[in-house]
Nucleic acid binder design. Structure first.
Lengths: 326, 326
DNA sequence: CACAATATGTTAACCGGATGTCACAGCGAG
DNA sequence: CTCGCTGTGACATCCGGTTAACATATTGTG
């Protein structure tokens, strides 16, 4: 009851294994008659070539590994979807790993993917100090994360995103603006938003207050941090959040502290996925060009796999989704 | 510059290939000394065993294929995340495929996954008439989709979900309730919601009006259908939607037709993902127990892989998230 | 000292398919 | 008739690791 092999097909078609392989791979001289016989036999047996055997011989798996914090988050979910679609069109399959909360998981994932001989890797996970990437003799592309000098980083224009968010808030008269960002020791281009925030505050002689939440924190833990925003900054009149999930949590919390949005508190989010724009159109947010990022990541990875030179940095423009929260 | 092999490790450790393999697989008699030597050599060479070669010999890949319409949708994104997490803990990797809009893509995906020798499959895609599943001599579990008599279906209690939604709407005095569901020729347990809807309407001598939208339709196409709800049912005072995305679209449209939610129009959604409850807490929705579904799907699949008998149907309870839209 | 248990090596087959080399038959063209 | 192209087969080797069979060397134990 086990699956048929090349030999079985050959026998049924009354020809040799070699010729069947020739048909499958379109090599050498072949007559119409044999080709038809082979396909008929394959159909009759429901023959599916064993890719594992091919992969071993060809040293190419047509597999790409994806490592993200969690595809349950709409930003990464949408990103993974876009990447998968594009990779599929190029004949690749996608092995996905969620590393959230767990550098160890990221590490074992990386090992497993390498062991599984993936042809390349696209990484958007948020953990620190993963040594293995350096020894991974493998085409890698990073999304919104700086890994090492050899790995290309695809990201949106985080500085401009920060600037745009701040311009909106300042134009609406906010002065006590609080910023939320990831840990500053995590090398991520998202730190550029912080730079934009701090520079623009400083230029106006306003105090810059940045709260740090690790992306991997649980909702409860994040809320703990966000409470401090309200408790320690009575005058706060605006928040520039590092993503839309955080922005939503902050808006939820605002009610508890008797702050109406947007009357008493302006909020700008970040990411602007389709899902947020559908579910929470009132949220003003900086929209990352997910499709373009995915496109650039795949193209860059394909180039690396092909052995071509690639830019080490691709920066794509952001846009603004104007809602009512700012 | 290519990756080291078992033989290289053996040479460096000054022992034979066989012994290294023994160390790796923990078989036969081994001395502490050799074990250490082997690990030292592996570390020195950055040796990673080639799983493809192992897979070929063992006829087991530790790969599970996932086929969903699109993980960009929060329901499937969260589901995929939960599945992946559980499968990872059991030593499996996950190959993911988004089949949206495209029966052909589902078919080629299925073929590719089979060719890649996945050990099992979890399918939640929404296409019709995919023959290949029948010949796929492979452990398969379906989520919210009826495939054939041999494939177990994991789903939430759709009839009860429909009933709960209707009870909410009827209790709030709605009488002209419109239902949105998937195509009735698609064999899905979600049709049970429609049955609950129609039975409860009929029991009250109310006209049952069900609109059909294929899950795979684009937003623009869906909106076209939803407009008809308002155009053809001037008296409509409630909508029971088949998912939260559709519910959101309908709420958006309601404004255009001068219907306030919930004063003029009640809306109940379906799925109740974490993301919706965060971004749109005001939406009343039937919450599917995603974690439990994922758990049951993985357990069932593991049993099938182990050759055990499994139930052909697992039904899990739904709950209600009470917002303000109904 | 003999015997069993422990530790390691050698060799070869195997997983399923790809590929290169030879051999050989049929057939049309020159 | 011979050359060269077309079509097919037989065989061996390779990909990288696993495993069974068998041999051998080193210990420890009664």
């Amino acid at each position: 009851m086990q699956s048929p092999k090349l030999d079985d097909v050959a026998k049924l078609a009354g020809i040799s294994k070699t010729t069947v392989s020739r048909v499958l791979n379109n090599r050498g001289y072949l007559s119409e008659k044999t080709i038809k016989k082979v396909y008929a036999a394959m159909k009759a047996l429901h023959y599916q070539p064993n890719d594992v055997a091919r992969q071993l011989f060809n040293k190419e798996t047509k597999l790409i590994g994806l490592i993200f914090p969690t595809i349950a988050n709409p930003f990464f979910g949408q990103m993974a979807y876009q990447l998968e679609t594009r990779l599929f069109n190029k004949g690749y399959k996608v092995l996905i790993g969620n590393s959230k909360n767990d550098p160890k998981k990221e590490e074992t994932y990386l090992q497993k993917l390498i062991a599984n001989q993936v042809d390349g890797l696209i990484v958007g996970a948020h953990n620190k100090d993963i040594e293995e990437y350096n020894n991974a003799n493998l085409p890698i592309v990073a999304i919104d994360r700086i890994m090492n000098k050899d790995i290309p980083v695809i990201s949106s224009d985080n500085y401009d995103g920060g600037k745009k968010a701040m311009e909106i808030l300042l134009a609406r008269g906010a002065r006590h603006i609080v910023h939320v960002n990831g840990p500053s020791d995590l090398a991520s281009p998202a730190q550029e938003r912080r730079r934009a925030y701090e520079e623009m505050m400083r230029a106006r002689n306003l105090p810059a207050v940045t709260y740090t939440v690790d992306f991997n924190l649980s909702e409860a833990e994040k809320i703990k941090v966000f409470r401090k925003i309200f408790q320690n900054n009575k005058q706060v009149d605006a928040v520039f959040a590092s993503n839309d999930v955080d922005a939503s949590l902050i808006i939820k919390l605002a009610k508890e502290y008797q702050k109406r949005v947007p009357e008493d508190l302006l909020v700008v989010g970040y990411d602007g996925t389709d899902i947020v724009r559908l579910f929470k159109p009132e949220l003003t947010t900086i929209v990352q060009p997910i499709e373009q990022i995915a496109e650039a990541a795949v193209e860059t990875l394909m180039d690396k796999i092909a052995g071509k030179e690639t830019p080490l940095k691709v920066v794509l423009p952001v846009t603004v989704h104007k809602g009512e929260t700012a």
